[in-house]
Simulated assay, not measured.
Amino acid sequence: MRTDVWVWSVRLFPSRSAAAAACKGGQVHVNGKRAKPSASVRAGDRVEATTPGGARVVVVTRLLSKRVGASVAAECYTDQSPPPPPREVRVAMPRREPGSGRPTKRERRQIERLRGR
């Protein structure tokens, strides 16, 4: 089975053209080797893909020729993806009180210093 068809049918990519483009761009590897869109995938192969949702590592357990529902697609591979990195906590920027008017020149400079400009 073609690599681009399989990664699309198990819903790693939103469209087959996106799956083929990822294969051509070197974002899909089968058993550690860069995979062309037409490269074959067999049960037991390890597929590493850089998807829009992040890096995914899956082991093929069953082949699909058509795109299926998410619950059926999840049964066709074993997910070995690393856990996503923790999200960075963003510090909230201080806000001016509503109705306090435009900032003065001094306040504007303080705001710019806080923003790092």
Rank of each mutant, 00 (worst) to 15 (best):
M1K: 13
R2I: 03
R2K: 15
R2D: 05
T3A: 12
D4G: 03
V5K: 15
W8Q: 02
S9Q: 06
R11L: 02
R11F: 11
F13C: 05
F13N: 01
F13D: 04
P14F: 00
S15F: 07
A19F: 04
A19N: 03
A20L: 00
C23T: 03
C23K: 00
C23L: 08
K24T: 01
V28N: 07
H29W: 03
R34M: 11
R34H: 03
A35P: 06
K36A: 02
K36C: 00
K36I: 03
A39V: 07
A39R: 11
A39F: 14
S40G: 09
V41S: 03
V41I: 14
R42Y: 07
G44V: 00
D45I: 00
D45E: 00
R46Q: 06
V47L: 10
A49C: 12
T51W: 12
T51S: 13
P52N: 02
G53Y: 10
A55V: 14
A55C: 09
V57N: 09
V57Q: 06
V58I: 15
V59T: 02
V60T: 06
T61H: 14
T61N: 13
R62F: 08
R62Q: 14
R62D: 13
L64C: 08
S65H: 09
R67G: 08
G69P: 09
G69V: 08
G69T: 10
A70I: 10
A70P: 11
S71I: 11
V72R: 12
V72K: 10
A73W: 15
A73N: 08
A74C: 11
E75Y: 07
C76W: 09
C76T: 12
Y77Q: 02
D79W: 10
D79C: 02
D79K: 08
P82Y: 11
P82F: 13
P83E: 06
P86T: 00
R87Y: 11
R87A: 11
E88F: 12
V89F: 12
V89Y: 12
V89Q: 07
V89M: 01
V91G: 05
V91N: 06
A92Q: 12
P94D: 07
R95K: 15
R95D: 14
R96H: 02
R96C: 03
P98G: 03
P98W: 07
G99L: 00
G99C: 12
G99T: 04
G99E: 04
S100Y: 04
S100K: 01
G101E: 10
G101L: 14
R102K: 15
P103Y: 11
K105S: 08
K105F: 08
R106N: 01
R106Y: 04
R108K: 04
R108M: 04
R108D: 01
R108L: 13
R109C: 03
R109H: 10
I111N: 02
E112R: 15
R113T: 09
R113S: 09
R115S: 10
R115G: 14
G116V: 10
G116Q: 11
R117G: 03
